[in-house]
């Protein structure tokens, strides 16, 4: 969090580049008709988000994002798209265009209001001592020991519930395949 690179202009420049690429990829996902190209846009979005995570000092999350999203989830999506014969035209617009647009505009308005209105800086402008600063950094940091500790102490119930859910999915998939 300290260090001279963050306030420099090059940091902002790189941030703007990555953010623009991410949003452009997301727009490609929404507006392209060819499903496979849209999936590739989605992969680009995931990679851009990973880059943004790195800029936010959350490197672990960035790599896990690439590993899980850009690696596994995208393959799953592309496998699913492969099952569809006619991927060139994708999903056509139908008569529900206007209501969908209206709903989307309302959603965008709500999200924009929430983003602008939230107090992102939880600590405010207070001047903290170095020890408290270090403690805060430690508690909110992204490092694997901290995350591991959190997962196995405070959040152990969601962890076990997720594991149970994944096991159920695996067993269900095997049962589906073997049942034929």
């Amino acid at each position: 969090m300290t260090g001279g690179i963050e306030e420099s202009g090059i940091f902002t420049a790189i941030w703007w580049v990555i953010a623009t690429l991410t949003v452009a990829a997301a727009l490609l996902v929404v507006f392209l008709q060819d499903l496979v190209k849209a999936a590739m846009g989605l992969i680009g979005t995931f990679l851009g988000i990973a880059g943004l995570f790195v800029m936010l000092n959350a490197e672990f999350l960035a790599v896990v994002q690439i590993l899980v999203y850009a690696g596994a989830v995208s393959i799953l999506l592309i496998f699913g798209i492969m099952m569809i014969r006619d991927t060139q035209r994708g999903s056509q617009a139908n008569s529900l265009r206007i209501p969908a647009f209206a709903l989307g505009a309302v959603l965008v308005g709500i999200i924009t209001f929430v983003v602008l209105d939230t107090q992102w800086n939880l600590l405010g402008e207070a001047m903290l001592t170095a020890a408290v600063q270090a403690g805060v950094e430690e508690a909110f940091s992204d490092s694997p020991p901290v995350l591991g500790g959190l997962l196995l102490r405070e959040f152990v119930l969601p962890l076990e519930a997720a594991a149970l859910l994944l096991t159920a999915t695996l067993v269900g998939a095997i049962a589906l395949v073997k049942g034929e």
Partner: peptide, 26 residues
């Protein structure tokens, strides 16, 4: 020297996996 270096090593080849599939599809 990333402090998540080992995870990085195994995360990046997943992109190679995706690209293999894209190559086969394309």
């Amino acid at each position: 020297d990333l402090n998540i270096g080992v995870l990085y090593l195994v995360g990046i080849p997943t992109i190679a996996t995706v690209s293999m599939f894209l190559g086969g599809w394309g």
